[in-house]
Each structure stands twice: as C-alpha cells, then as structure tokens.
C-alpha cells in the first residue's frame, strides 16, 4: 500500500476545438472562478477577453528597462569622454555638444536593456522556469502542446466544489474530465 498522500490540484477537461474552448471559457469566467486557465497548443486570440484577463503589464517594465539603458549609455559615454578622459578626435568638442556622437550607443543599449527586461520580466510574470507542475501528472495533459484544448480549474479556487465544478465542466462541453492530484511527501 502506498503511503504517499495526494492533494487535489483540480479538474482538467478537454474541449474539442478552439471555438468550443472559447465558449466554455466565457462560461467559466461568468461562473466567477479566478484560479483557472485554458491550455492550448498555440495562442488563441481573443481568449484573454473570454477569460477576463487584463492586458499584460510587461510593456511598463520594458519602458523603464529601456530608459535605464539610455541613461546607462549616456552616463558611460559622457563620463568617459567628457569628464574623465576628454580627447579631441575628429575635431569634435569635448563637452555636452558632442552628444550626437553618443546616439548610436545610447540607442543600442536602450534596445539591449529593453530586450533583457522583456526576457526576465516575462519569466517573472509567467513564473517560469519551474521544474515541475501538478498538471504534468495528468495522463492527457501532454496533448496541450500538441492538439488538445484544455481547461483546468484549481481546487484552491473559492468556488471549487468536487461535484459542482465537475458538473459545470461537463455542461459546457468538457470531455475526459479528470481529477488531477499532486503527490505530497
């Protein structure tokens, strides 16, 4: 007899197409759930509204990341070329008026810092990387990256009930409804 305790993660239900998933998502949203997600092999456009998700806040991070890049490049160029080591080359001034020559580097570092902010901001927002997830215990979930459309409603959600949620998923067209459990030691 196994001694591992299991904790319920939630219900996973499959839907037959992107359209079916879309309509089902609207109903789950209207039922007032908050800890749930739609799993699709490709980004289904319009699903954000059907799920009631807000626009991603990533652009704000990137805006400040980009400004940091511009400021870094300007400081680097200005301090080294004007303050610490002023050298007359190409008959250009060694004061603030030499700034047009700094524009290419300021531009490049703006892009570079923004790019890194996109990468790390995204990883922060989607909470990756992580080594495992309860859903990976499901027998059918591997199809979410192939041709399966799924909705998973977590047991942590206040509206979750073992029977009610199962019925809801069945009523809105869910098939192969599965109770996903995560192992706990």
């Amino acid at each position: 007899m196994s001694t591992t305790r299991k904790r319920v993660y939630g219900y996973l239900a499959e839907f037959k197409s992107a359209s079916a998933l879309y309509k089902a998502a609207e109903k789950v949203r209207d039922a007032g759930f908050s800890k749930w997600d739609c799993y699709t092999p490709y980004p289904v456009h319009g699903l954000d509204a059907a799920m009631g998700l807000k626009r991603s806040i990533l652009p704000w991070f990137v805006f400040f990341g980009g400004i940091t890049g511009t400021a870094t490049a300007f400081t680097l160029a200005y301090v080294t070329q004007v303050v610490i080591y002023p050298t007359v080359v190409q008959a250009k001034p060694t004061n603030i008026f030499t700034i047009p020559a700094f524009f290419p580097v300021m531009f490049e570092l703006t892009i570079l810092f923004s790019g890194f902010t996109v990468l790390f901001g995204l990883l922060g927002l989607i909470q990756l990387p992580r080594l495992n997830h309860p859903l990976f215990a499901s027998k059918q979930f591997h199809r979410a990256t192939d041709d399966g459309f799924f909705i998973a409603i977590e047991a942590r959600d206040e509206k979750f009930s073992p029977q009610g949620t199962r019925d809801l998923l069945a009523n809105i067209g869910g098939e192969n409804i599965e109770l996903v459990e995560e192992e706990q030691n």
Partner: peptide, 12 residues
C-alpha cells in the same frame, strides 16, 4: 522552462 501553454502564460 516548464512551459504549460496556459493562456495566462500565452497572454504575457
């Protein structure tokens, strides 16, 4: 990276 294809991930 442990990608799951959830729409909360796709959105970002």
């Amino acid at each position: 990276l442990g990608w799951r294809g959830g729409n909360r991930q796709w959105s970002h």
